[in-house]
Write a protein that binds this DNA or RNA. Structure first.
Lengths: 336, 336
DNA sequence: ATGAAAGCGCTAACAG
DNA sequence: CTGTTAGCGCTTTCAT
């Protein structure tokens, strides 16, 4: 049986209350007493039971994180950022994966709400209305999503798209395709919107290519549509899709970037490894994870008026090998 | 304030104990009463406080999972398997990432031990001695590692290597390199050993190429050594390394599989997407995660004599495009 | 500065 | 079948 605070109290010859104080509010006990308590605690290998403490303080020291898909390297990176920040603040984190199913989100929130001080919903797929009703009994902050006036951390998707489009325009591209991600993704909406604005401003034709799952396979499936669209460049919802695009273009023998330029989004590790390396809009994944934990913690510690409830992190285009000058004669309708 | 069991009891006009029973041991209360309780609970949106329950039952309903690196797709897949199985058993899971640092493992175990019913250490990097002392106060099961008589779930690494080597031998390869992973990885040791045995049996020369980090960069760094070794085929510690190998070979203009064959291990999603697609030893990642949760849960429910304390899952070679017949004149010492 | 006692939300005897 | 009582490990008044 693990030692309890009573054991320590007995060993140190003080009351439970004193042990409690010595350990969590050290300046409330005489140094000599504190030393005795600390010695006894160390001796016995005492570790306070957080659940019991939580029962009374109302704080569990736990955070929850819900993501659409852990197998997606983007979310894996976010998780690492969240982890690191939580650990630094001496919190543990529950992680749950919805498998891209919007309906699972509310369930998971309910399941976790009672066991955590706060919850991070990363890129939630549920519609705004549903999101609004969720998590009444715990603090929740959104990441990669804005909904009502829920606190949130986002990245500047629109600006990233602007950078990408200006880069392509500067290379002479006048017809650019966008391979859209999940319909329910807020980031996708942001990216589309940013793209439309920039395309208009820059006199670029924007071709919208269906919605595809945010995975390699999505890109593979989208590639032929992109080619047929006559675009000389394509921006993908994310790097996974861009990589799928690259793969299918390779199979069809369409040279990148000579015949068509490709831009991804997120800058997952893998994208630097493709051949040629993928030009992509880098998103600060780890930093966003850390920032979200920071926001959540400040909310918990200082209440809702502790500062700004929204934070937006910058994005940055990274030019690598998949973008080049537009071909003289666009590959309109055929690849020859 | 969230409703407590008292609120429900009052609303239903029964005692707390009856509510507790109605909800967790339904057959101990009269159907009519049960219905009243259930109605009241639903009405109030009552959700039992698991921490409070845990305080008395000694069961938290939480599991802990510690992995070396969430950004590694292999572990991401494992995590998904663990997640799914835990959720099915109505358990939540704490996940922690050690960043490949062996010393972080013990700390994390200590931090989590009190809050979980059991802990899964996935591919722990700590030495056996250290592992033995860890987790006295909670049930821990190992995954991808055997240490003492700790319960564990592993995969048949040696057999996977055998399959890979026999495949290569059948293609005429007589000199095969192995790019080793982390020195502290048990899986790596298993793979090396399996390889040595099979190489001896099959009359194949095995060349051991240093230890490299289990990442893309590791493979990039190893490629030139492999080429210089005169091997006509190479087996990598894992797919990430194999992909790095492929990349560097591509840069050097060495055709795969014509000049050299490449085999990976793990079968992470990405490996089917390379060009050519990677031949690899598939490891049942999700299934291993599920099996580990199963073992842990049976340990918790039925005690240490509930059945076998070790499970080994099979591995399976998947032949794709990076392996082919050995070149007539091996690329001994040079690539021309 | 320290101790005694109350109680967080829940379940487990033990009566009835 | 159901209510009463005790108490899990801890923090927090309230005394002293």
């Amino acid at each position: 049986m693990a030692p309890t605070i009573r054991d320590v109290a007995r060993a140190a010859g003080v009351s439970q209350a004193t042990v409690s104080r010595a350990l969590s509010m050290p300046d409330l006990v005489r140094p000599a007493t504190r030393a005795r308590v600390e010695a006894a605690a160390r001796e016995l290998g005492y570790r306070p039971n957080r659940a019991a403490r939580g029962l009374i303080t109302g704080r569990t020291g736990n955070l929850g994180l819900i993501v659409p898909d852990l197998a997606n390297p983007f979310f894996a990176a976010v998780v690492k950022g969240v982890q690191a920040a939580a650990r630094a603040a001496d919190h543990s984190v529950f992680i749950a994966d919805t498998d891209e199913e919007a309906s699972a989100e509310a369930d998971l929130v309910r399941a976790l709400a009672k066991q955590v001080d706060g919850l991070i919903l990363c890129s939630p797929r549920a519609p705004d209305e549903e999101l609004a009703s969720v998590g009444a009994d715990t603090t929740v902050v959104l990441m990669n999503r804005v909904a009502g006036d829920r606190p949130s951390v986002t990245v500047d998707n629109a600006d990233g798209m602007r950078q990408a489009l200006e880069h392509l325009a500067a290379l002479g591209h006048r017809r650019v395709a966008f391979v859209a991600g999940p319909r329910t993704s807020w980031s996708n909406a942001q990216r589309e919107e940013g793209l439309h604005r920039s395309a208009e401003a820059g006199g670029v034709d924007l071709v919208h290519v269906g919605h595809f799952p945010p995975q390699f396979e999505g890109g593979v499936a989208a590639a032929d549509l992109v080619v047929a669209s006559g675009a000389t460049a394509v921006i993908a919802y994310n790097d996974l899709v861009a990589l799928g695009l690259l793969s299918r273009l390779g199979v069809r023998g369409i040279p990148v970037p000579d015949a068509i330029s490709v831009v991804g989004c997120d800058d997952i590790g893998m994208s630097a490894m493709s051949h040629p390396a993928l030009t992509t809009v880098s998103v600060p994944k780890r930093a966003a994870g850390r920032a979200t934990v920071g926001l959540l913690l400040s909310l918990l510690n200082a209440g809702p008026d502790a500062g700004p409830m929204h934070r937006e992190l910058p994005t940055q285009l990274i030019v690598r090998g998949t973008t080049g000058v537009a071909p003289i004669s666009p590959t309109k309708g055929s690849s020859r």
